[in-house]
Design a protein around this nucleic acid. Structure first.
Lengths: 343, 343
DNA sequence: TCTGGTCATGCACACGTGTGCATACGCGCC
DNA sequence: GGCGCGTATGCACACGTGTGCATGACCAGA
């Protein structure tokens, strides 16, 4: 039938009116008489008219698109966040460009530039090491920017953020172990520069201090920086667990669930029973946590909610409404990997 | 400095040339003298010019965007595919719209219409129940379409696909168990209408038949249709494992890894040792498979590769090159959940 | 019949970029 | 000096949609 996309001009020709009339009729503009409005709308439906978002964007200077940059698409941690964002974006008829930056600063700059070229109406960046290196570039786009679990030290007044309170989460985990009667509680962390690492360690230390326990440095193992990725995290937990175990801990708090899973594997290999001989608590509550054996007690991050919230903040900012940074409180999910200290 | 985006007109004003000259200079058009070309390019860089992809798209009728629909973004199975697509798309300077359809036909139509509105240059659909209901709509967009692991029965000549050979994969799994000496081998499947379910069951049956084993219907449990999702799959495996176990099997092949994990949980609860008393083999090789206990022997689907391949097919189709449907052969990953039959 | 007013529609331009065609300039040659 | 030619540039239009303003039609009231 139609060998290409049909435009309002095509409709105008058939309806024997001008394209302006068609445009107005399709927008229910009251200037147009009810009769022609109905006729045009019927014709548009019959001809299978689908508006050209490109042309509309050029005119209205709004694209109805959002740019979403994430360190790794394949990481299940982020995909929950993406799902949350997609959820509210779809409900608002917004399209989302998703791409991953691989934690590579150069790539991150490319991504931002691509978003700029595409004239997105908003940008969400999840867990990048975003520094002030290209804050200026972001500012140039003059578009709402929301960071999720931003780990950069510097804050800029035109950039908003949604994050989880890592310190409070760590305290929750350690407090749980204290409540179970544990006194010698270890921590296995990662060595990267992310603030989350630092905050969780601080939460661990403060919770111990608040309980009147002087923490032994030998209880804490932090892997050297450099490595990153799913496999690496698990491997780190596996490798560094023995260090703290030899220091005589009866319970362990890990930077994240993957490190905890690594610790569980190390326990299994060494014949240490979990939770009978050693309790293990993780952080994040990734899906994996409920399927490993024993299933992992962990601090739940409301990832989907964070995604939704970030997207909602973009909408508010677009509407010119005032907006505040959000810090969410995580909660504890108790499963099978922790138990009261015996005797 | 600049309170808005700067255009080639702005550059033209400063350089005291026409916007056409700027446009040509930036494209290294030989019509422009070397002197002005250099001057314009320097100016563009200084002023921080970033071309407007929207305006360019309107003119060139190419957007440089791809629409990607996936049943569930949060599902780690798909996120690997998305990562593969993103990998080659980014390398080609293409932007990808990602959205999820939740296996809802109505939502799928919305998604396709949105892609049409955005005038994407290609569409990739991962694992939808895509029927001929909107094949016509797809055709109207007149854009390359590639389906990944398409489970719909009908094929259309203008729609291409990348998929894994489910039957061959199932045979691989069952053959492995046969090689280990097992004779009574069960299957736990799902009840949805997807072809993959049917094909894996057929592969299972054919492998048994080829080994001269008359399969007992009691060895096969297929959950009723209706449910879907990550949790449900695991729950199905957990619930239906006892059925086949009571039929006296010594080994089990599962529709996918999640079902297999459910079976592992059921074994653990019932005190059945894996793999000593019962071998379990899954399908997909999701990340979870390597972290459960015991780690799962399974059929690996090259998900990232499938994503890359699909995107490359889009590129070839855009270039007008001929293109063939791809069927990939999966391979077996042996871990700890299977063992030779005792005695 | 003329005037003033309301209502429906079209004209023309805008958004930012790309491009066919005309044009202006410079230069060499007869 | 005029002609022809090649080179560099600008004009004008196109892409599809939205919108301010002018215009035309129609009608009521004086």
């Amino acid at each position: 039938m139609d060998n290409s996309h049909i435009s309002i001009k095509d409709i105008a020709r058939v309806a024997e009116v001008s394209h302006s009339t068609v445009s107005r009729a399709l927008h229910d503009n009251p200037l147009i008489s009810a009769a022609t409005r109905a006729r045009v709308q019927r014709l548009a439906a019959e001809m299978g008219y689908i508006p050209d978002a490109i042309a509309r964007s050029l005119q209205t200077q709004r694209t109805g698109t959002i740019g979403l940059a994430v360190t790794s698409i394949a990481d299940p941690f982020f995909s929950e966040i993406v799902a949350g964002i997609d959820e509210v974006a779809s409900a608002q008829q917004l399209s989302v460009f998703v791409t991953s930056s691989h934690n590579d600063p150069e790539r991150e700059i490319e991504v931002v530039e691509t978003f700029h070229r595409q004239r997105v109406d908003g940008i969400i960046v999840a867990a990048s090491k975003l520094g002030n290196r290209y804050a200026e570039r972001l500012q140039r786009i003059r578009v709402p920017v929301v960071l999720i679990n931003n780990h950069a030290a510097e804050k800029h007044d035109f950039i908003y953020s949604v994050s989880v309170d890592n310190q409070a989460g760590a305290k929750l985990a350690v407090q749980r172990l204290l409540d179970l009667g544990h006194r010698r509680i270890g921590y296995v962390g990662l060595g990267h520069q992310l603030l989350s690492n630092q905050h969780r360690l601080e939460g661990y230390q403060e919770a111990l201090a608040a309980a009147g326990i002087t923490s032994d440095p030998a209880w804490v193992a932090v892997a050297p920086p450099g490595l990153t990725g799913e496999r690496d995290d698990v491997e780190m937990g596996r490798q560094y667990f023995p260090h703290v175990w030899e220091a005589g801990v009866s319970a362990l708090f890990c930077y994240n669930d993957r490190v905890a899973v690594g610790a569980l594997m190390a326990c299994h290999e060494a014949g240490i029973a979990v939770p009978a001989e050693c309790s293990v608590v993780g952080f994040d509550d990734i899906n994996l946590a409920q399927y490993v054996f024993p299933s992992l007690t962990t601090v739940h991050q409301p990832r989907r909610k964070m995604g939704r919230l970030a997207m909602q903040m973009i909408l508010e900012l677009q509407a010119g409404e005032p907006c505040e940074n959000q810090t969410l409180l995580p909660h504890l999910v108790v499963r099978e990997s922790d138990r009261a200290r015996e005797r």
